[in-house]
């Protein structure tokens, strides 16, 4: 197994575990961490492509992804804080307004 192949498998693993974290954990901030992990997996792939090819495209794309991820994290934390004030909980289970009331 070459170095690059290993890194591709690693990024796939990272993505899947990020997804698993986002799906299974109940605390909203840990869910956010899972999402960050997924984004990082994508970044790793882009850095790999950048490594394979001539040019800067992969690296720059990864850079923009980081910028968007930062925004997402900031807004996400703000929303979590706000909903914590509103629901007195940062556990996603208890925030289920999408469900019909019966």
């Amino acid at each position: 197994m070459s170095k690059q192949e290993l890194l591709f498998f690693f990024s796939a693993f990272l993505f899947c575990s990020g997804l698993l974290i986002a799906v299974t954990k109940k605390n909203a901030i840990v869910v956010l961490m899972g999402i960050e992990l997924m984004l990082n997996a994508a970044n790793l792939n882009l850095a790999l492509f950048n490594f394979q090819k001539r040019g800067m495209d992969g690296q720059l794309l990864a850079l923009f992804i980081i910028i968007v991820a930062v925004c997402e994290a900031a807004v996400g934390i703000a929303i979590i804080l706000k909903s914590y004030h509103f629901y007195h909980s940062s556990v996603l289970d208890q925030i289920s307004d999408l469900k019909e009331k019966n």
């Binding site: 901030i29 970044n43 992969g58 690296q59 990864a62 850079l63 980081i66 930062v70 994290a73 934390i77």
Partner: peptide, 23 residues
């Protein structure tokens, strides 16, 4: 190691420095 030094520095600064503190 993948010769993306700028990306590495950005990762350190923004993720490890910024987002983590935020979290």
């Amino acid at each position: 190691l993948l010769q993306a030094e700028f990306l590495a520095v950005t990762q350190l600064l923004i993720y490890a420095g910024g987002v983590l503190v935020l979290m």
